Simulated scan of single mutants.
Amino acid sequence: MEFHAIRLCVTNFQECLEFYRDTLGFQGWHDDEQQYAYFEKANISLFSQEKMVKALFQESQPNEASSQMKLIIQFEVPDVDMYYKRLVNKGVEFINKPHDRKDWGSRVAHFYDPEKNIIEIYKVKDNRK
């Protein structure tokens, strides 16, 4: 498992994009429709808190989810399903099972650490197939 980035879940995407890009000078790319930005050298991404809550809790959204979710730690793994099984066997509480996110171009799963911080494991999908 390799550390990828800390994803900040923000309530005002445009304001935060301008702050990290223009004020702090971080370079990267962004997608206004998805409300997502990634600053490669800083290992920080921004994502709309509202969109992230919907993505994580597709079936039921806990009332406290949007107010508590400020960041997600991302790890890239060679095989999301294998890591999911390995971590479930160790008693890890998952938010969702491994699934493909075509809009993100990735296979992902999300789980909690003991303090209820959210961790994402992901693998970029080869979209050429």
Rank of each mutant, 00 (worst) to 15 (best):
R107N: 07
E50K: 14
I72R: 03
G105L: 06
Q34F: 14
G91Q: 10
M1H: 12
E2R: 14
L8F: 13
P62R: 02
W104D: 03
F94P: 09
D79P: 07
V92I: 15
L71N: 04
E18H: 13
Q27C: 08
K97A: 12
F13V: 01
N127L: 15
F75W: 13
F57N: 03
I95D: 04
I72G: 04
V77T: 09
K41E: 11
Y38M: 12
R101D: 06
R7A: 09
K116T: 04
A65I: 06
E76F: 03
C16V: 00
K116L: 13
Y122R: 03
H110M: 06
T11H: 15
N127E: 14
Y112N: 08
H110C: 09
F47Y: 08
M82C: 05
V108R: 01
D79M: 09
R107T: 02
E40W: 08
L24H: 02
S66F: 10
E18C: 05
L8P: 02
Y84R: 03
D103P: 02
H30L: 05
Q49M: 10
E115S: 14
Y20P: 09
G28Q: 03
V77Q: 08
Y36R: 05
T23I: 15
V88N: 04
S48K: 02
E93A: 14
H110V: 01
I121H: 09
V80K: 02
D22C: 04
R21P: 05
I72V: 15
Q35V: 05
I44F: 07
C16D: 07
S60V: 08
I44S: 04
F75R: 03
D126F: 11
K102N: 07
N12Q: 12
P114W: 11
V77W: 12
K70C: 05
G28N: 06
I119Y: 07
K123M: 10
E76N: 08
D79F: 10
A109Q: 04
L17M: 10
V53S: 10
L8M: 07
K85H: 12
E18R: 08
H4P: 00
Q34G: 00
Q61I: 15
R21W: 10
K70T: 00
C16T: 00
L56S: 02
T11P: 07
Q35M: 14
L46Q: 02
F57I: 05
A65Q: 04
L17F: 12
K41Y: 06
I44E: 01
V88T: 10
M69T: 08
P98C: 03
Y38H: 11
P78Y: 06
L17N: 01
L46I: 01
E115Q: 13
K54R: 11
Y83H: 11
G28P: 00
F47M: 12
D126E: 14
F19I: 06
V108A: 14
N43G: 01
D113I: 07
F111T: 02
Y122E: 05
Q49T: 00
E120Q: 12
T11V: 10
K129F: 11
